[in-house]
């Protein structure tokens, strides 16, 4: 489905050989990965602050 050539043969590949080359998939995955990184930091900060508040005098 995401083989970078219409012909399912490695002999047809002489450059990029990863899943989705030539489609939107790599760019989409890069975007999703970046969103994950940001979202995890946001969630992490919120929960850590909430837990730290429990120790405030």
């Amino acid at each position: 489905m995401f083989f970078p050539s219409d012909e399912a043969n490695w002999a047809a590949i002489d450059g990029a050989m990863f899943i989705g080359w030539g489609s939107m998939l790599p760019g989409l995955m890069t975007f999703i990965a970046a969103v994950i990184c940001v979202a995890v930091l946001v969630i992490g900060q919120r929960s850590e602050v909430a837990k730290a508040k429990a120790f405030d005098k």
């Binding site: 990863f18 790599p26 999703i32 990965a33 994950i36």
Partner: peptide, 16 residues
Amino acid sequence: SGLDIYFPAHAFVIAF
């Protein structure tokens, strides 16, 4: 299984 053919960001998302 697909370290030879994954795109790096794709590998990141699956690993996540």
